[in-house]
Structure formats: C-alpha cells, structure tokens
Nucleic acid binder design. Structure first.
Length: 573
RNA sequence: GCGUUCGUAGCUCAACUGGAUAGAGCGUCUGACUUCGGAUCAGAAGGUUGAGGGUUCAAAUCCUUCCGGGCGCACCA
C-alpha cells in the first residue's frame, strides 16, 4: 500500500467536494499537489504542498488557506491526528496510532508483495548483447546487472519481462574472429606463427577454442574457406558458452537469444526496409564525410538512407554499404522490426556509454516501424573504472587486453559486484574499488545491509522467535517511540521507491534505500547501549511489542529489496 | 566543430523528478564496549550546488549563455 497515494486521493476528493467552502474556484493545480515524507526535523508522517499550489492558483494567502484546510482535514479524515501549518504554507500531518497499526497490518498481510505496483505489462528488455567474439569484460558487467535488476524490479511489480540477448553473429567482426580461431588452429597443428594483425583477436581464449575444435573435428584445416561454416559455428558456440557461463556466475540468465544471422537470413531486413519505403522514411542520398578526424578513404556516393533526421537524429543513416550489402544498422533495424512484431507493451534497450550516439536512429527506427505506436526506451550505463588502493587498476591480461568478468569474479563475489554496480546512478561513471568491496565494514554498503539483516536474525534466534508465525497486531495501542516512528516512516516510503525506480528505470535507488534503512536500524539498536530503556532484549525476551514489529517490517523490506537485487541475505556472518 | 552526458562538502556520491534549514559515507577532530552482534553508534567541523542570466510563491532540479570532464560522431559492430 502506497500511503501517499492513498491519502492524497482522500485529500483531493475532500477538497473537490468542499472547494466552495474553501473559496477555491480553480482546481487545475490538483495534479501538482504532492504528499510526501516531511524533512527529517519534522516529527510528522506526511507533508503536502497543496496550500501553496492552490493559494497561488486562486490568489489566496496560502497560510489562511492552510488553516482552513487543516480544520477540514482533522474533521473529515479520522486517520489524521494532528496537523501543523509550517513554513510558507506546508501542512504536516501526523497519523493516529490506529491508522499506523492498520497500515502495518496491511504490510504484514502483503509480506513480500508490499510495495509492488501490481502492474501487468509485458516488457522486452535487451541487455548485454556483447559480441560473441570473446569473454565478457568489465564494461558489459554493469549493463548486465542493470538490465537484470531492472527486469527483477519490473517483475516484482507484476509485469512479464523477457530478458533478451541479441547475438551479433554476423559481419566482419565475426569473420575476423573465426579467422583468428583458424590461425590459432594452424598454429597448434602446423606450428605456423600467429600474426597479430590489427583486426584479429589474439587472446588466449582463442587458443582454447582452437584446441576444443581440433579435438572434436577430424578435418586437417588446410583451407579456411572450406572449413568456414563449421569453424564459425563451433567458435560462436564456445564463445556464447563463455558469455553465458559468466552471466550465470553473476546470477543472470536471459529468456531469449536472437541471432543477427537468423534475422538476416530470414529476409526480415527486406521486409523492414520495405515497410519504411512504403511510409516514405527512406531515400537515396549522399552523406557528408564524418566530422572530427580527417577521413582519407571517404568517397561520396549515393546510398540508401533511413531518414532518421525526422526523429531528431543529426544526419540520415546509411542502410546499405558501398558494396550493396546491408549495414549493421539495417540488420539491427530488422531485429527491432521483429521485436515490434512480437507485440510487447514496452521495449527497453540497455546500452553502454559508447553507444549513446546510436540511440536516436534506433528509436526513430522503432517509431517508424511501428507506425509511431511503440517507443523504445534506451538506458545508457556509463563506464566502470577499477580502483585498487585508491589508484586506477588494470587487471591481468590473461584473456586479451581487457578486464574480464571472470577475472573480476575470481577476486570478488557476485553479491558484492551486483550491489556495487548498482550503487550509483547509471548515467554517472562508477568507481569500482576492490579494497572497498572486500572490506567488512560500513565502507562496504553490501556488507552493511547484510549485517543489519544478520543482526536482526541473531536477535530473533536469541529469543527463539518463530519466523513463520503469522504477524498481525491485535493491540489497539502500541506506543511507538521516536526511533521506531522514524523507521516506520522510512518503511512507508518503500512503495514509493519502487514506483520511482521502475517508472524511471532507475534501480540504483534500491541499494541506496536499503542502506538508509539499515542505518536507521543500527542507530536504534545502538541506543540500547547507552540507555537500558531502549535495549531490545532483557532476560532473553523482548518485552516491547513495538520492537518485534519493527524488526519484522524491516525483514520484509530487506528481503524484497535484496531479492530484486539478487544479492544474498545471510542469517549469520 | 556537432551531438550527448555529467559538474553538489577535501574525496566518492544522494537529494522522493520544482518544495521547507541541500543530506550520507570516507577523511579530519571528539566521544561510547563488565550483559542484546562495537563488523556498530553518538557528536563536531566542512557548501555561493562550476559561473552568469532567466522562469516560479518556491530552482541543485526547468530555460539560456559560457567554463570544465566523460562518451560518441564509419560503409565497423
């Protein structure tokens, strides 16, 4: 239950009913009024700007209006126990304990569902989509976790999510990759020296793939061309196995793998381009040479272009290469045509920072291909910088000249990686500090949140508490103290955090929130060290019911939160 | 040059998407363990939110002009 929405609705309806009495003729501002938790220093549960908004719209003094509304609310909404008018015209509301208890009981009833928006949309989220030419590197890792947690979050809200991986198994990079494998095979079989040309892949993993292929196949591998089909099939297979295995270790598994090659071979490109042609989104035209660096090989030729300018792109984009074959973009466009045809409610792509410039054309393409019915949302994950002992760090180059996910996983566990990768907004660069992530202290947010959970579990063990018992408050009066009230207010915000995170596709708010919640608990707990009245356990028992209530509530939220993040929540540490 | 994104305390970042006295962690300084997990907690200091202008009752947040950093600017993928 989102109490802000709940009470906001009550208040709005009341104001609509009583607008004449209040002297309000202009109710347009209704959508601008909000209800939220007041700033820290105010000992109230709710706060609203409504008098400021309506005061302005109706040319009334907000303070006068606030006083009128105050009496109205107190009279009509029994859940409101006290109201103060503060600052320029905010109203702060304190809920009755009865109301608090009934909200809490509702949370206990909902348990893991507490906070869920109970939506019912179908999503397709494309993420990772790393080229199958080698193992995953650190850059992919952030987007992978982001996409996975966003998926979990949307599922938590009742949606159906397809996690999709687009395999770029077509084109020159793949040819070079397969050629690299071939040359390594020749190296192993015939002691031919592997010449490290610019477009080839030298990494050790290529040797491993070569070994596997040799073992499995009788061919003498004399001819590259004759063996190409089997080579490419096998190389791609091993490459994807590597990637899938890395993803699995990170706790990620995709529901759907779509191959570029299959898209190309199925004529989808022609279909998609025809669709664009019919709607006049395509033209034959010329492109200017690219700005920035000097281009030596630039030839001005007439080419088939997608009019992405119509969708806000800088220039129109080529669909065909000079040799008449389709561009990567044309294939991708076809892939998105396929996506559109699968009728999802919403499409999301998670991209790396280096693909920012690509967004407008592909969004334009989706608009054009869906007759402007489908929007593609693109979320960009900025770079990850690795640090060790405070300075930038380059990891082993065992697998090529990049830092791989397996390297990372050999030093840091999956839970820490996941939490840390999300502990920052996706559009900000992220410093990933090895020392911090391995530390068992407050500096390591994963640990801090896990510790909060372990501590609660430990207390419950101490009193032999039965966690499976149905929780419900039967008392009509509990008498929450100020620490507990603060925690309860924080807990009430959980549905709101979920809402914002999922509406804006910003899952990083969840780790932040969990950390803050943990802080409140640790703080409350420690109060018992200086003041016996605040001790949780006396003589092996918890005597204040409020303490048990708080701990159970925190457990509910920690569990759903960490489940969304897919990070472990140990009972003991 | 164009596009995009970011700029908040000494450092790393939040700020409920326009609200009240801009908050955390680290670092610095001071304090708290004979009993519930001190792997923690309490307190202090630290800010012209890069700069200027504008919109608004209200701006870190929106608009605008600069300044600075990242990323991108192929017929690659």
């Amino acid at each position: 239950m989102n109490i802000y929405n709940y009470y906001l609705k009550k208040i709005s309806n009341l104001i609509k009913d009583k607008s004449k009495d209040l002297g309000l003729s202009e109710l347009n501002g209704l959508k601008n009024i909000n209800l939220e938790t007041p700033p820290k220093n105010f000992d109230y549960d709710l706060s609203s700007n409504l008098c400021l908004v309506f005061g302005k719209n109706n040319n009334l003094n907000p303070l006068d209006l606030a006083n009128k509304i105050k009496s109205l609310l107190l009279e009509k909404i029994t859940d409101f126990k006290e109201i103060e008018v503060a600052g320029p015209g905010f109203i702060n509301i304190r809920l009755s304990e009865k109301a608090l208890i009934s909200i809490i009981n509702e949370i206990f009833n909902n348990e893991e569902q507490f906070g869920s928006k109970k939506d019912n949309f179908s999503y397709n989220i494309e993420f990772v989509s790393a080229n199958p030419t080698g193992p995953m590197h650190i850059g992919h890792c952030r987007g992978a976790i982001f996409g996975d947690v966003l998926s979990n979050l949307l599922e938590f809200n009742g949606n159906k999510v397809t996690r999709e991986y687009y395999i770029n198994d077509y084109g020159n990079q793949i040819k070079n990759f397969v050629k690299s494998v071939y040359l390594r095979i020749r190296e192993i079989k015939y002691k031919e020296k592997f010449i490290d040309e610019k477009d080839l892949y030298p990494g050790n993993y290529i040797k491993e793939i070569a070994q596997k292929i040799i073992k499995k196949n009788q061919s003498n591998f004399k001819s590259f061309e004759k063996n190409y089909e089997i080579l490419s099939q096998e190389s791609l297979k091993y490459s994807m196995e590597m990637i899938k295995s890395d993803l699995k270790k990170l706790g990620i598994s995709h529901d759907s793998f779509i191959s570029e090659k299959t898209i190309v071979n199925s004529n989808t490109v022609d279909k998609a381009v025809n669709k664009l042609k019919n709607n006049n989104y395509v033209e034959e035209g010329y492109l200017d040479p690219p700005k920035g660096e000097e281009q030596k090989n630039w030839k001005k030729t007439k080419r088939l272009l997608f009019k992405s300018v119509l969708f806000g792109d800088d220039i129109n984009r080529a669909l065909k290469k000079n040799d008449g074959s389709w561009t990567y973009f044309a294939n991708d466009l076809a892939y998105h045509f396929d996506k559109v045809s699968r009728n999802y409610d919403r499409l999301i792509n998670i991209l790396g920072a280096d693909h920012t410039g690509y967004i407008k054309r592909i969004q334009g393409a989706v608009n054009a291909l869906s007759d402007n019915k489908v929007n593609l949302e693109c979320k960009v994950c900025q770079l990850v910088k690795l640090f060790k002992k405070g300075s930038p760090f380059k990891m082993s180059k065992r697998s090529g000249d990049f830092i791989t996910v397996s390297d990372l996983l050999s030093e840091v566990n999956k839970d820490s990686i996941r939490f840390m990768m999300l502990n920052r907004s996706n559009d900000v660069e992220l410093d990933f500090d090895f020392d911090k992530v391995l530390e068992k202290s407050k500096e390591n947010p994963v640990f801090y949140v896990q510790y909060c959970h372990a501590r609660i579990q430990s207390i419950l063990r101490l009193i032999n508490y039965n966690l499976n018992e149905k929780k419900v408050i039967n008392e009509s009066k509990i008498g929450f103290n100020k620490f507990e009230k603060e925690i309860i207010r924080k807990l009430f915000e959980w549905p709101k955090i979920i809402k914002i995170s999922s509406d804006k596709y910003e899952p990083h708010r969840i780790p932040f929130y969990l950390y803050e919640l943990s802080t409140l608990f640790h703080s409350y707990w420690s109060k018992g060290n200086e003041d016996n009245n605040y001790k949780f356990v006396t003589n092996g028992k918890i005597e204040r019911p409020s303490v048990l209530i708080i701990m159970n509530l925190i457990l509910i939220v920690l569990k759903s939160g960490m489940k969304i993040l897919n990070v472990a929540l140990p009972n003991k540490m």
